[in-house]
Computed example of a mutant assay.
Amino acid sequence: MQSHDPAPLSSVASRTRLVMARPSALDLYTLACGAFLACAPWLFGFARPTGRVDSEIVGVAVMALSIAGLVAFADWEEWLKVALGLWLIAAPWLLGFVHTSAMHVSIAVGIVVTFLSLLELWLAHDADFAGDDAAKSDLL
């Protein structure tokens, strides 16, 4: 008769927590934001073509950068997502689709993408969170 040792279960749980705690897990959330943004013109029926095109292009760009961040983390990917998030916040006024459903979606997703990208940058460079000597030596 086989006995079930709880040690393998706890090691799997700790490895899962370690993977989900990594900043790259935040890329999954920004990937979902990009997918939502790319599909938003059909979900909400954007009336103005500028809002529709902006949403589709920026959504695909956020998805591409999130996938690149999942494959190999680099600061430049996160800074580009920050720039895209800030663009989404300013785009309704710059492109002229103020007071539309596209404006509300653009601003909301822009805030979330900017926040998640800045959080990922912060966590990647936080010596206590990273737990490795490389991040600690960056601070010295």
Rank of each mutant, 00 (worst) to 15 (best):
S55R: 01
A64E: 07
D5Q: 08
L80F: 15
S117V: 14
C33Y: 11
V71G: 01
G131N: 11
A102P: 09
L123P: 05
W79S: 12
E56D: 14
C33P: 04
A134D: 06
D138M: 05
E78L: 13
R15S: 05
L139A: 07
G85E: 07
L139G: 00
D132M: 00
M20H: 09
D27I: 00
C39V: 06
S24I: 12
L70D: 11
R22W: 15
D132C: 00
F73C: 04
F97S: 06
G45C: 05
R52Y: 14
F46L: 00
L140Y: 07
G45E: 15
A74N: 04
S117N: 05
E56A: 08
I57T: 10
V109C: 01
D27T: 03
T50R: 09
D5M: 06
M63K: 11
V112T: 10
W76K: 07
I89K: 12
F129E: 14
H125I: 00
F73M: 05
L28K: 01
G34H: 08
A68I: 07
A134C: 01
T30A: 04
D133C: 03
P41C: 01
I89C: 02
S106V: 02
F129W: 15
V109Q: 02
L116P: 07
L70K: 06
I67Q: 01
S106R: 02
L43V: 06
D128S: 00
R22L: 14
D133R: 11
A127E: 13
S66E: 08
P8A: 04
V113T: 08
D5V: 04
L26P: 03
R22I: 00
A68F: 12
